[in-house]
């Protein structure tokens, strides 16, 4: 069993396809949706974890692609720009999973662990410098 986090991008002709239903039913994958959005331009985005055997995950991803849906590493939805970050740390109490955290108290450098990020976007409103960005930003 492994878990993989994905960012799916649906274009106009694929927004009405029940992809997640098929991932569960046809490929025996456990899904955990973090965030989904459909825009007025009929473009959809979905971030989810899929958990299952490696074989089923590969088959599931192949199926998604066959539906004309783009599959990316989920971190393409959220971007922490290290060059813009000043390591002030104002984000720290707004990140519930410590994806943004302090490296050590000697340097107080802020670092980002994308594996832990759940795309809650709590950091975005609370970064004074605009170092946190997401495709889900309003």
């Amino acid at each position: 069993m492994k878990t993989q986090k994905l960012l799916l991008t649906f274009l106009k002709d694929s927004v009405d396809k029940p992809i997640v239903y098929h991932l569960v039913k046809d490929f025996d994958l456990i899904t955990n949706i973090y965030r989904a959005r459909i825009t007025a331009e009929e473009k959809g985005s979905l971030i989810l974890d899929i958990t299952g055997s490696e074989e089923n995950i590969d088959k599931g991803i192949a199926f998604i692609k066959e539906q004309g849906v783009t599959v990316d590493d989920a971190q393409k939805s959220f971007r922490w720009d290290e060059a813009v970050c000043t390591s002030c740390g104002n984000c720290l109490t707004h990140c519930p999973v410590n994806a943004l955290h302090i490296q050590d108290t000697a340097t107080m450098k802020v670092i980002f662990d994308s594996e832990l990020c759940i795309d809650c976007l709590g950091c975005i409103d609370n970064c004074p410098y605009g170092a946190c960005q997401s495709i889900f930003q309003e």
């Binding site: 002030c88 740390g89 104002n90 720290l92 109490t93 107080m108 802020v110």
Partner: peptide
């Protein structure tokens, strides 16, 4: 939980 507005890292 605590957080800072000032950057110790940049100060260093």
């Amino acid at each position: 939980e605590t957080s800072s507005m000032s950057s110790y890292e940049k100060a260093l």
